[in-house]
Amino acid sequence: MTNTRLGQASAAAVSLMLVAAGFIFLYAPTDALQGPVQRIFYLHVSSAIAAYGCFAVVLLGGVVYLWKENIAADRLARAAALVGVAFTSVTLVMGMIWAKPIWGTFWTWDARLTSTLVLWIIYAGYLMVRRLAEPGRQAARFAAVVGIFGFIDVPVVHFSVTWWRTQHPGPVVINDTLPAEMLVAFLITMACTLFLAGVMIAIRYRIEVLMDQAAEKTVPAPIVAPSEARGAR
């Protein structure tokens, strides 16, 4: 995608997030029990789903890379991992802000909270592998392996509320317990957040392409001792 197209897509994503904010703060009713804090739910759950989606892209990119050695798949995985970590951070921070007034504490060692934290650490490790491994084929292969193993934690996070008895609220959307207006606000926020995630991945993908091109162009500077350099002159 060209820079102009990416600029237009970013503008669209920002406007859509403002639309979502309108639905969250103006359209959705205030929760009878939790009060205004409940409005965190819309973005908290949406960014968790966006993060799952990003990590699924990392998984697919990794599998395709190992299978076909396709550099585009690797770039896509790189881009999605970074965006996924960002959305996991948003999920964790917003969850903690919600938990303080509702549970009386920012953090509790509940299965879903713990597994989400582990998810964040796994993909932060993925980004570290990318930085520390030799760029190119080795970094791509190693990261693909980490991305594939790391994805095992995604279903654990998702089903933790059903597998264990947790303090974290269970699924409210699929269980049809959400009032219609809240559901509309949630679905719109989710669609806007997923669009934002897609645009962020596209921008990061473009950066990765440019970085790869820059790395190819860079010719290592010849190592010359200062005395030799003077002598040459």
Binding site: V118, I121, I122, A124, G125, M128, V129, L132, A133, E134, Q138, F142, V145, V146, F149, G150, I152, D153, V156
Partner: peptide, 22 residues
Amino acid sequence: MVARVRARELLLPVLTLPLWIP
């Protein structure tokens, strides 16, 4: 994996511990 990368002592716990959690 980490035997072939820089800062291997740092990277091994970061990659391994989360997957040992189960």
